[in-house]
Design a binder for these strands. Structure first.
Length: 108
DNA sequence: AAATTGACGGTTA
DNA sequence: GTAACCGCCAATT
């Protein structure tokens, strides 16, 4: 059988990880990529989110970039995080120092 | 087939 | 601490 596109194998993996993000926590695209086993696929994670259907109940609003900022053209993500108790810095970036999910602790 | 783009990360200046 | 550049992978034009 022909090798499946990277999407077919990477996307579902990303969805599983994002769904495992605890309440009131945030994770960077690179963090999700690393848990997925592809630390360099940070971009694909973003593409996965954009392609992520709402049917999966995917808390993509808990996924932010390493700048602590949110996705372009999606300002409501910030509101959703605030609603979960996440604190934003003055420049509009999430306080990664406190809300970044301890992914390295789970890698064992 | 080649070049460009994209919800990014990390390092260097 | 902030700014800029390079590097990564896949999809699209």
């Amino acid at each position: 059988m022909p090798d499946k596109s990277t999407r077919e194998e990477f996307f579902p993996e990303v969805y599983e990880i994002v769904k495992q993000i605890p309440f009131g926590k945030v994770l960077t695209y690179g963090g999700v990529a690393r848990l997925a086993g592809r630390p360099q696929y940070s971009r694909m994670v973003g593409q996965a989110m954009f392609n992520a259907p709402a049917d999966l109940h995917l808390p993509c609003h808990r996924v932010v970039n390493h700048k602590g900022g949110i996705a372009p053209n999606w300002p409501e993500q910030k509101e959703l995080l605030i609603e979960e108790g996440v604190t934003f810095k003055k420049n509009g970036c999430v306080d990664m120092k406190k809300h970044r999910w301890n992914t390295e602790l789970l890698l064992e």
